[in-house]
């Protein structure tokens, strides 16, 4: 199973993940609060991916993909919850993306969640079929 050892296997006091967890969180905050759709989506993906990576590396979980999928689900639930709570049902339409300040931000969060679910799901399936 083990081929070449990775950086954090070779070096017990090194890990590439914390830098990207921090960068992901920073980009997510900027994207969501300032209202920059692409920054929000990519920032959240980086954040969620790094969480999956760091949990796997430190041995809390065995594989990163279910975690990535889980973070995606949490984001979608949050976005959906806020939408139902704060956005009038009549305004919930794809054509309204980019108009309402809250709705656009929630769509960004949901989009990031959807991408993470897709990535986590596809990778899980690929891993299992490869094995």
């Amino acid at each position: 199973m083990i081929e070449e050892p990775g950086l954090s296997d070779q070096y017990p006091t090194a890990s590439p993940w914390p830098l990207f967890v921090a960068l992901g969180l920073a980009l997510s905050e900027i994207g969501v609060f300032v209202g920059l759709f692409p920054v929000a989506v990519f920032g959240l993906i980086l954040f969620g991916g790094s969480i999956a990576g760091i949990l796997t590396e430190s041995g809390y979980v065995e594989r990163p993909w279910p975690t990535l999928l889980g973070v995606g689900v949490v984001l979608i639930v949050i976005a959906a919850g806020f939408t139902l709570w704060q956005v009038p049902v009549a305004d919930i339409a794809l054509s309204n993306v980019g108009t309402g300040p809250l709705f656009t931000r929630l769509v960004a969060v949901a989009a990031a969640g959807a991408v993470m679910i897709a990535m986590g799901g596809v990778a899980s399936v690929m891993e299992q079929t490869a094995a």
Binding site: G6, L7, P16, T56
Partner: peptide, 10 residues
């Protein structure tokens, strides 16, 4: 830099 398959659960 990382080999994700080489993680040892700990």
């Amino acid at each position: 830099v990382e080999n994700w398959r080489s993680y040892t659960p700990l």
